[in-house]
Structures are given as structure tokens and as C-alpha cells.
């Protein structure tokens, strides 16, 4: 488990270095994700090695958002000042974006004939 965590941290660190060094808009962890993915393609055994730990870790991804969420709620009074319009926009646009994404996916999947398995 510690070895797997160390591998993840090394890739994150490498990603941060590239992101900051080249002042890219893409955050370090996303670059680390891409680099680890490429490594899996070259060394499939690494994916097997990391599988159990990473799968367990990702099943509790929700937990990791709790501290940031508490920050929002702790400042909700200040947030409410901006008015109801912001809340309507937030909920409305998220619903519309999901519908647009699902709709576009299904439409193009049908057109290109790549149905679900």
C-alpha cells in the first residue's frame, strides 16, 4: 500500500513539476494521470500491481471532497448575498450540461454504430 502511494506521489510530483515549469493550464495531478496511464500501456504489470490499492482508494473518493465542501457551507452566508440568481444558474446549468453531454454521447454513438456492450 505504501509503495503504491509512493508511486502515485512520484507521478503527481512529476506532473506538478511539468505544469509549473512550463506554466501549463493543466493541473499537475492531471498530467500525472496521463503519465501513469502511458506507463500502464508500456508496463501492464504495474497496473496489476496497483489495482487493488487504487481501486479501494478510489471507492472513497467522496471523502476527499468533504473538507472543501465544509469550507463552502461555512461561508454560505456570504454566498447568499450574491442572490438567488447564482443558485438558479448553478442548478440549471449543471442539469442542462449533463443532459447535453448524455444526448450528444448517445446520438454520436448511434450514428457511428458503437453501441454499449
Amino acid at each position: 500500500m505504501i509503495r503504491v502511494l509512493a508511486i502515485l506521489l512520484v507521478y503527481q510530483l512529476a506532473g506538478e513539476t511539468v505544469s509549473r515549469g512550463l506554466t501549463l493550464a493543466v493541473p499537475g495531478p492531471v498530467i500525472g494521470l496521463a503519465a501513469l496511464f502511458v506507463t500502464f500501456l508500456v508496463v501492464p504489470r504495474l497496473a496489476d500491481y496497483m489495482r487493488e490499492t487504487v481501486t479501494g482508494f478510489l471507492s472513497h473518493l467522496s471523502l476527499l471532497f468533504v473538507p472543501a465542501g465544509v469550507g463552502v457551507v461555512a461561508h454560505l452566508d456570504a454566498f447568499a448575498e450574491y442572490g438567488v440568481g447564482l443558485f438558479v444558474a448553478l442548478i440549471g446549468s449543471t442539469v442542462l450540461a449533463i443532459l447535453a453531454g448524455v444526448g450528444a454521447f448517445l446520438l454520436v454513438a448511434k450514428l457511428t454504430g458503437v453501441g454499449d456492450d
Binding site: L8, Y11, Q12, G15, P29, G32, L33, F37, F57, F65
Partner: peptide
């Protein structure tokens, strides 16, 4: 105290490479 949990977002994001590969 919560920053230790918050910090793990970074390595978890890197870990998303695994489901992508699988």
C-alpha cells in the same frame, strides 16, 4: 486537521489512470 484528507485529492486524481487503463 482536514487538510490531510484534502491533500489526498492529488494522488487520487493520478490514480484515475487505473480505471482509464482497465
Amino acid at each position: 486537521g482536514a487538510q490531510f484528507v484534502h491533500f489526498m485529492l492529488g494522488p487520487a486524481t493520478v490514480g484515475l489512470a487505473l480505471p482509464l487503463y482497465l
